[in-house]
Design a binder for these strands. Structure first.
Lengths: 195, 195
DNA sequence: GTCTATAGATGGATAGAC
DNA sequence: GTCTATCCATCTATAGAC
């Protein structure tokens, strides 16, 4: 209560996580040291351990936060009954959500193998829950004859890979706006699965 | 000439590279130690340095070998004049080549950021040369009115991402054979780009 | 809650004997 | 060409002063 020293103490945790996210995404979990994270935040190494039990927990927290944010945002969307319209909505939602947080997406994709086994299982379950949203849409479209997909499971993975791949090359300063790219993807996906 | 000691000395280099490839793909470059690689081959650490100047060169060699193999195989294909048939050929070629070497593909994709800058540039150029093969096919299809793609550059990247994503989940022991999966992808891609 | 200091382990890479 | 032994840097995590 005596000190007001610049910022609330409770903001240090989030700042550490933000720095770790940046660094993990750019250099990879194994290549980033706790010292580097501390320096990025303006702390000494020891101080980090007031905010996380260890490096692995830091990674796991970031991954879990990203996945639960994704699932929450996905659930908050309103999903049209019509499969074709739902699919279009999914493509737009996925692109916008992922393009808005490239670091988290990149990390979530690349660092799965650096999770301890029990952490991996939990994160993997969250990921499957998300992909299931798309799989249900494709199934419904096939069931009612709107989509001509010969294998829903493969189609789901193909579409997810195509959409997520966008974040590996999209740069806001590039020639195309995100809106323009979104339109191209909407068309590509819609045509790919139609009868 | 005196010793025949089990195997030719000249096979040690390839065995080191094979072990490094396996480990880099499974755990990531930064997470793998030279001691681990040596143990996998049945050597002590110091002996590795008779076959590679350092760890970075080992990674770079593996990446470059993979990319030049890919380009050579791609050039050896015979490519139909007709864009639709060429596109089908590309999909089949890409899937087969990549499914046959999942470790190399995974490493080539994940470890780009661990290359020293000058190495990165060289590998990136090789990658662009490969993607250009697809871009040319799509351009020709658009030019002659067979494809309805609204942006060739985006389409190229979307298709590559979709195809390469296959290697992150395909397992030979899974329910589908590679041939079956290949057919699904051929259809998905052909439909995605048609007018 | 952050600091300094350090423990204890492990990393890449080298030297010299064989 | 491989071994043993080692240098030296760096790493994660902890201890204790403030």
């Amino acid at each position: 209560m005596a000190r007001t020293s610049g910022s609330r103490a409770s903001e240090t945790g989030p700042r550490i996580r933000a720095a770790a996210l940046r660094l993990f995404a750019r250099q990879g979990y194994a290549a980033v040291s706790m010292r580097q994270i501390a320096a990025e935040v303006g702390l000494q190494v020891g101080a980090l351990y007031n905010h996380t039990p260890d490096k692995q927990s830091l990674l796991c927290d970031l991954m879990e936060t990203h996945m639960t944010d994704l699932l929450a945002a996905c659930a908050a969307q309103d999903w049209p009954q019509d499969p074709a319209r739902a699919l279009e909505g999914f493509v737009r939602f996925h692109i916008r959500f992922h393009a808005a947080r490239p670091d988290a997406v990149f990390m979530a994709y690349m660092e799965l193998r650096n999770l301890a086994p029990e952490n991996f299982e939990r994160i993997e379950a969250l990921r499957n829950a998300y992909e299931n949203r798309l799989e249900v849409i494709l199934s419904q479209g096939v069931a009612c004859g709107q989509f001509g997909l010969s294998d829903v499971r493969i189609g789901t993975r193909a579409v997810i890979a195509m959409l997520t791949g966008l974040t590996t090359w999209f740069r806001p300063e590039g020639g195309k706006t995100l809106d323009e790219i979104e339109e191209v993807y909407v068309t590509l996906v819609a045509q790919a699965v139609r009868v």
